[in-house]
């Protein structure tokens, strides 16, 4: 299948708010990729919207840099509302 690039498929479900990655498939162009994605990934009413992206256009963060990229966020608990204890009488905050 030379010349039939790989596409990643993202589907937004009926009650979903965002497209999630469901898998991939091969197709020669975007139109065929969309049709194929509809046939392969939404047979049981899973979706209301499909995105297809050429796999080569996806740029991913480097798994080896996972710690540097993501750990610093873990020790800044003050970014979460639950960090702050408020007196019980305070409402609407």
């Amino acid at each position: 299948m030379n010349g039939s690039p790989l596409w990643e498929v993202f589907v937004r479900s009926r009650n979903g708010l965002a497209h999630s990655h469901v898998g991939s498939l091969h197709a020669p162009d975007a139109t065929m990729a969309l049709h194929n994605a509809r046939d392969v990934y939404t047979r049981r009413g899973e979706g209301t919207s499909i995105w297809v992206v050429r796999s080569s256009d996806i740029h991913a963060s480097n798994p080896d840099e996972k710690d540097a990229l993501f750990e610093p966020a873990l020790d800044k608990a003050f970014r979460q509302a639950t960090y702050f204890e408020l007196p019980d009488e305070v409402k609407n905050l």
């Binding site: 010349g3 020669p28 162009d29 065929m32």
Partner: peptide
């Protein structure tokens, strides 16, 4: 069939 689909895609990639 696959070759035809690829050929078509190449011909029309520029337009896309």
């Amino acid at each position: 069939v696959r070759e035809a689909a690829t050929a078509y895609a190449r011909k029309h990639a520029a337009e896309a």
